[in-house]
Design a protein around this nucleic acid. Structure first.
Length: 432
RNA sequence: GGGGAGAUUCCAGAGCGGUCAAAUGGGGCAGACUGUAAAUCUGUUGGCGAAGCCUUCGGAGGUUCGAAUCCUCCUCUCCCCA
């Protein structure tokens, strides 16, 4: 094992600002030997989203440093609900769905981690496998026995919920025990000595190290990264439409690319350190250039490029850039008319599409009806009218008013109509 | 088991029985300005329409010329005491 890399895992995370907290001795452990470390993921969906990205990057750095990353699928814990997480009630997953999701998530992780590189290959485990047969009495005796309620109640996640007045269910209260037991199990069966995660997981992780100490008289470690935030206080990784997913079916590569491109200046520096593998020198240079000409958005572009390529592909990245240029660049109606059909289609791959019968277009459709009844671009006529009045609707990149009538002259390539709601929302209407 | 509070348009939160489609704030959306940014300013935020009409204030009934506002029952939520 290359000693050089091993020694630098913590250093690497440190300059990237990815360390929020760690237990004493963590660094020493990582220098001493190849160490297995794990992070848990929620299998309630068949795709990861960018909220998972920071922790994935921790595993990537870990593996780069010669250690062994393990992704734990929380098939069991996901059923209980983490009080430190959102407060929604969790659904029970049936096992088929669970396995399907697990496989899908693994496929996504393979873009980041090497699951076949010898000793420190990444590995995936599912806590459902060692939890499902665990009986209540057995659990209480083997796990519950080792920790006091006093200890468990002292956790912030629990305390907050008790103070909030809405209470906390026994299931959720027990969550930390179940998660702690995972750590124990991995420690015993897979020599895992470190659990990582977001800083909101600190309490849960430490329950695990505590349990290992008391039950197994072993030494295990915790390492957390800061929660990713947005400078404007909003939630990272959420848009009005919901999460930004890694799955291109859920979030198109174009949307994905746009998400990162729209990062604010303040956040871009943090993000590029956290989400890319660019070196410190490269980042310093980018930051320097960015400060000199912020309007070029050098940081955002570098960030978006790196992540889009890793998560999707070079080809997807290129077409996302192309699409962005056409949609946001100097694109005029003229450009649009000249665009060959195949480019047009690839550019609009990620935007919502609607179909309208050609003969209706030939007959001409008043704009308001076109935007509502014929397509679903607006849900009500009032809204469409309002937006038209506010000068917020464009057809083929040209502002239109409520008098506008859609006819054959509006067709691009004799087939398509490009509708814009505001500046950023595009819709492609296809005639059939 | 006992006592108390409450359920309002995306959220928070006002709302003398008529002048309430419902204050205000937040959020959303759009416009201006810009860098597809931030900040700021402006407009808008139930549906259909020209006026006007229609459906909304937890659910079901009732009192009234008229109810989000009053009464009854129901459902749910929260708090406090045992």
């Amino acid at each position: 094992m290359q000693k050089y890399f091993v020694m630098n895992f913590i250093e690497e995370l440190r300059w990237r600002g990815m360390i929020h907290d760690m237990t004493p001795g963590t660094e020493e452990q990582l220098q001493k030997e190849m160490t297995s470390a794990y992070i848990g993921y929620d299998p309630t969906s068949d795709s990861l989203h960018i909220g998972n990205l920071a922790s994935i990057m921790m595993l990537v750095h870990l593996q780069q440093a010669g250690h062994k990353p393990i992704a734990l699928i929380g098939g069991a814990t996901g059923m209980i609900g983490d009080p430190a997480g959102k407060s929604e009630e969790r659904n029970l997953l049936d096992e088929n769905v669970l396995r399907y999701n697990q496989q899908a998530i693994k496929t996504q992780l393979e873009k980041f981690l090497d699951f076949d590189c010898g000793k420190n290959s990444a590995e995936m485990v599912n806590n459902y496998d060692w939890t499902k047969e665990f009986g209540l009495l057995e659990f209480l005796r083997d796990v519950g026995k080792h920790l006091t309620v006093n200890y468990m109640v002292a956790k912030d996640s629990v305390k907050n919920r008790m103070d909030s007045g809405s209470g906390i269910s026994f299931a959720e209260f027990s969550y930390q025990l179940v998660q702690g037991y995972d750590f124990c199990w991995l420690y015993e069966n897979k020599q895992v000595k470190l659990q990582m995660g977001g800083s909101d997981q600190w309490g849960n992780i430490v329950t695990g190290t505590e349990l290992i100490r008391r039950k197994l008289r072993g030494e295990a470690y915790a390492l957390t990264c800061p929660l990713i935030t947005k400078s404007d206080g909003g939630k990272f990784g959420k848009t009005e439409e919901g999460n930004i997913w890694l799955d291109p079916e859920r979030t198109s590569p174009y949307k994905f690319y746009q998400f990162w491109l729209n990062t604010s200046d303040e956040d871009a520096v943090d993000y590029i350190k956290t989400f890319t593998m660019l070196s410190e020198a490269e980042i310093d240079l980018l930051v320097k250039n960015h400060v000199e000409a912020p309007h070029l958005r050098i940081l955002q572009k570098a960030l978006a490029k790196d992540i889009t390529i890793r998560v999707h592909s070079e080809a997807y990245y290129s077409s996302a850039v192309e699409a962005s240029e056409i949609l946001f660049g100097k694109g005029t109606t003229g450009n649009l008319l000249r665009l060959p059909e195949n480019i047009l289609l690839s550019v609009f791959e990620g935007v919502p599409q609607y179909e309208v019968a050609k003969r209706e277009i030939v007959k001409s459709i008043p704009i308001v009806e076109f935007l509502t009844e014929y397509t679903g671009i607006f849900t009500s006529k009032g809204e469409a009218r309002r937006m038209l009045k506010d000068n917020g609707v464009s057809i083929n990149k040209q502002k239109v008013d409520s008098e506008f009538v859609v006819g054959t002259s509006s067709l691009l390539q004799d087939v398509y109509i490009l509708v814009q709601k505001g500046k950023k929302n595009y819709f492609l209407v296809k005639t059939v």
